[in-house]
Write a protein that binds this DNA or RNA. Sequence first.
DNA 1: GCCAACGTTGGC
DNA 2: GCCAACGTTGGC
Length: 160
Amino acid sequence: MRDRTDARRVPAHWLMKSEPDVYSIDDLKRDKRTFWDGVRNYAARNHMRAMKVGDLAFFYHSNAEPSGVAGVCRIAEPAKPDPTQFDPKDDHFDPKSPKDDPRWWAVTVEHKETFPRVVGLAEIKATPALRSMALLKQGRLSVTPVAAAEWKAIVALSRT
DNA sequence: GCCAACGTTGGC
DNA sequence: GCCAACGTTGGC
């Protein structure tokens, strides 16, 4: 029986958005790893809590020129409570989050690869195999799952 | 800068 | 529990 507790399971695939003006894949390459704090959307949080160490995620540049997939990172640590939710001086402070039952969690990711070129959103939309990507179906969700076939197709595009 | 999509909040 | 108002995301 292969389930998500099985360390030998096939890594799952994800897509995580960041505005490169705030934090880009170059920043991640420099830092080696980063804690993905600041997510304040339940669906995105749930996806992060479902992530396992070793899962792979596309690093997506949003609000960018061009917007698109810029590379790959690897989940380095499972989701942990995001301390910024408890900091009144932080932009992401959430006064309603109970200290003993934190609302907001985040994974740590590490840089794996910067693509030779960004695979742009327009290109993703124009690729038939990618038409049902969660990225396109739930346009404003910042963390989404990626199907294995979609993963392969985008990696292949990045090599062209 | 505009605005569509859509998640969240709060009054009732 | 409904739904209007509001806020945010992110493409364009």
